[in-house]
């Protein structure tokens, strides 16, 4: 992606970037102006305080407590396990269901997230044409799925993918299938339905981030590209995408995070079935916490496993995508 920076349109971008290097000139004059710099730095910190404080108390403190829990066993009265990492050993070496849900979750991640983000990017790009009519209509329609209640969405999807449902009727009618598939009762078909459901629900959501990002873009760069005679696809690849990089990174982290913590589709669309074959880690976590004999120590261990996986992936993504210069 960094190759793109060397494209012919770069001058315009560079021109914009240049003054952005935070008040470098005054740096020499030590006495008065560095004080100003420090003061600004301090202002920046005060701006962060409310948000950081809230997150610390509302997330990190409970997370720390949850970590303590993850080292404990017992159903009501919890005690520290011996060895302390007992729950983790059990999770990764003995719990076949967890391993299965982990595989499922990563399958959704690998297949669904790239397709969704590319599709969202394309849709945003298509929508962002000034002379396109009915833009508001398209934009609304494509965004709507994520605003629709999970109850009706799952009912509709289950009906459509029922054995005698619309999807089978169409596919058989077009001779694409010889006999109807029992979508929700065959592991791979059911997984495909979950991926389709996710695409349906979240593509428009990601699209609006790209749209917002496109709105904030610097139009001068597009003019420059036009003058240089770049075609639409070239412009898209070499001007739009590099400038959208912060937003692409954001959506990628967010989608990865969302998919690894995926609960809704597994719970409402397939119920995790047939027999855990489509279940996600978070759905399993929920069952361990509240459905059966609640085992909070073990559930906390599951949640920490998820946390570490998300964190590692996010770090990788940030390394790849968050290059400042």
């Amino acid at each position: 992606m960094s190759q793109a920076t060397k494209s012919p349109q770069e001058p315009a971008k560079a021109a914009k970037r240049a003054p952005a290097k935070k008040g470098k000139p005054p740096k020499r004059a030590k006495q008065g102006l560095l004080g100003l710099e420090q003061k600004r730095n301090l202002t920046g910190w005060t701006f962060l305080i409310p948000a950081a404080l809230l997150i610390t108390v509302m997330s990190f403190w409970p997370m720390f407590k949850a970590f303590q829990l993850s080292l404990q066993i017992g159903k009501n009265k919890l005690e520290y396990a011996d060895p302390l990492w007992y729950n983790y050993v059990r999770l990764f070496t003995k719990d076949k269901t967890f391993i299965l849900t982990m595989k499922n979750t990563f399958l959704y991640l690998i297949i669904q997230v790239p397709i969704m983000l590319v599709l969202a990017l394309i849709l945003a790009y298509l929508l962002n044409k000034k002379d396109l009519r009915c833009r508001a209509l398209f934009r609304t329609a494509i965004f709507l799925p994520c605003a629709i209640s999970l109850v009706s969405y799952s009912m509709v999807f289950r009906t459509m993918f029922a054995k005698e449902g619309l999807v089978n009727d169409v596919l058989v009618g077009l001779n694409l299938l010889n006999e109807p598939i029992n979508w929700l009762n065959e592991p791979n078909a059911a997984r495909a339905v979950i991926i389709l459901g996710l695409l349906w629900r979240w593509t428009g959501y990601n699209m609006i981030f790209y749209l917002a990002g496109l709105q904030n873009l610097d139009y001068a760069t597009f003019e420059a590209a036009k003058i240089d005679g770049a075609g639409p696809i070239q412009t898209f690849l070499h001007v739009t995408i590099p400038q959208l990089r912060p937003m692409i990174l954001l959506t990628a982290i967010m989608s990865t995070n969302g998919t690894l913590q995926l609960f809704d589709e597994s719970y409402a669309l397939t119920g995790g079935g047939p027999s855990h074959q489509t279940q996600t880690m978070s759905h399993y976590l929920f069952e361990v916490s509240f459905k059966n004999n609640s085992n909070f120590g073990y559930a906390s261990a599951i949640s920490f496993a998820i946390l570490v996986m998300v964190a590692v992936l996010a770090l990788i993504q940030m390394r790849v995508g968050d290059k400042r210069d």
Partner: peptide, 8 residues
């Protein structure tokens, strides 16, 4: 006949 959800 087996169905996939309670509603069905």
């Amino acid at each position: 006949e087996e169905y996939n959800s309670w509603d069905e």
